[in-house]
Nucleic acid binder design. Structure first.
Lengths: 322, 322
DNA sequence: GTGAAAGCGCTAACAT
DNA sequence: ATGTTAGCGCTTTCAC
């Protein structure tokens, strides 16, 4: 009987309970969550859309979010979108069809264009700058200002020619990073031309390739300025790992020849050689906030959406020259 | 009507089909996968149990497996167990209750003890040494022999005193790695005592701590042998990252002062400084084999289980001295 | 080629 | 305090 398993909404005599539990054990009964979900209207699951589990930033985010929801009795279904609009929509449809109770999207590509269009009735939380729109909550880093602060730190060390390694150009996070770099450079009267910017795959290999382009004596910075940048602002920790490796291959010392600052602040950043100076997002905090807010909206569909921007925190390593 | 959406098992007149598709668009109809699963008996989902998404080895494994199943129209539900038996069992119950069509377990803790006990009717695939038992397939690295081969490579470079950094001692993979190291050392007449072994958390921090223990002049190797090991065999790439970092902190050069070889062969290993020599598992191959085999068993419940051992492939970097 | 209806395993609202 | 049953939204069998 349903009431015994769920400590049901109505009382059960201890003798009956024992009898039922007996039968459960004897028959090897397993509850069927599918049937329960169909009837009860809740799956106790939420969908999480992330670009790539191999990027340590998203790996940490996934683990933190999973932990938060798991503690609250929810299962997190994770879909990897690889920055592809098609995959993102496929997973979104799949999650909605599976009746997740809520949806969290990080670095989403398509949501910006058609928020309301195909969203289903579930509450949605975006972990980026989200377009103004009803029924979509957002928790986002202050990408522009954080990037500017990171660049400013390099400027304080005396650097003027600071190269910039970005991720995929069409992501709002990336354009905000680049804008932060550019505005901070302009504010300091330092060079901010496109020859100093290189977009690349958000991976070690991508960061490596981009750094090669910016630092080698065949690169465009050298061609236009007669020398290489003395510092790099890198849009993610993974790419920074690749950038440090590029310096190693080119025989450039970090930070003596090239200073590096990156965005992310993952655990990975603490174990590079030298340790990275990195703009840290408090992922645990984001995850806690995300879980408690989204579940509030799950429970009470009329609850207000949330719009929150979080400032990062520059963790000082040795890669900046400090 | 059901037949139009599924190109159903029975034909539909084009005129009817159009009429139905019209209604679908007009009413904003979304299929309910829950109801479909309850009726149809298949959820088109499989459960994946991994210890930790932040470990790049499991991140790569997760992405490869997800991709394989996604291509075949299956959703992968991932649960992170953090090497905890309790979490592992919770997720297993949750997956079974949700009627996954199959289950993949990597680095499982509890499965060894009670395979058949609570498994549900779904086919199970273990990505480790699995105990002999019906209805459990397994695809496993040749942990012992691969470890021995890695150690032998260090011996070929002339190293005799080779330290060993292991992961969590109670995992079968780990005991196999340690045994491989020990047997290879004994075969070469080289030291293989417990003072050269350090177990640690499978993370950068864990590898760092373990390496400090083995390499510092307060460490037990030094106390017993009067000098530090000249090389380290490390059980995972993440730990090797931490070990390299420890060398950096101790002022030891890799590979001149300390040579390092690790197990894993992840992408991470290619971007350390210097690049790691690492025993690579072909994760893409494992994922393909896992998906095709498991789905065979999903489709035909009477299909044979699979028991496969895969030999690793030593990828030469610079950390070994080559 | 199409319509109608049974039933998957639960939960909650009806009974008693 | 317990027994019984309608119905969640699909798929599939049965009847036409």
């Amino acid at each position: 009987m349903s009431y015994v398993l769920n400590n049901g909404p109505r009382p059960v005599a201890p003798e009956t309970r024992a009898r039922v539990e007996d039968a459960i054990a004897k028959l090897g009964y397993r509850p069927n969550a599918i049937a329960s979900a169909l009837r009860g209207g809740t799956t106790r699951s939420i969908g999480l859309l992330l670009p790539d589990p191999r990027n340590p930033y998203y790996a940490e985010l996934a683990q933190a979010i999973e932990q938060q929801f798991s503690e609250r009795g929810y299962l997190v279904l994770t879909g990897s979108t690889y920055y592809s609009r098609i995959l993102e929509e496929q997973y979104r449809e799949s999650f909605i069809a599976r009746k997740v109770d809520g949806l969290i999207v990080s670095s989403g590509v398509s949501l910006a264009h058609e928020q309301a269009l195909g969203l289903g009735e579930q509450p949605v939380l975006v972990l980026d700058d989200a377009p103004e729109s009803v029924n979509v909550s957002s928790i986002a880093p202050q990408n522009h200002d954080d990037a500017a602060a990171a660049v400013e730190h390099l400027q304080r060390h005396g650097h003027r020619m600071i190269g910039c390694i970005g991720g995929l150009a069409y992501l709002s996070t990336e354009s905000a990073h680049i804008a932060g770099w550019r505005n901070q450079q302009i504010a300091a009267g330092a060079p901010a031309g496109d020859e100093l910017v290189s977009f690349a795959d958000p991976s070690e290999a991508g960061g490596n390739a981009a750094a090669q382009l910016l630092l080698s004596d065949h690169g465009r910075p050298w061609a236009l300025h007669g020398h290489r940048p003395s510092a790099l602002f890198v849009s993610s920790d993974v790419q920074a790992v690749g950038a440090i490796f590029a310096c190693y291959e080119l025989g450039l010392r970090v930070p003596e020849d090239i200073a590096i600052v990156s965005m992310g602040g993952t655990k990975t950043a603490a174990f590079t050689i030298p340790p990275l100076t990195s703009m840290r997002q408090d992922i645990q905090f984001i995850a806690r906030l995300a879980a408690s807010h989204l579940l509030d909206r799950v429970v009470d569909a009329s609850a207000n959406t949330l719009r929150r921007r979080l400032r990062g925190n520059l963790v000082i390593g040795h890669s900046c020259g400090c």
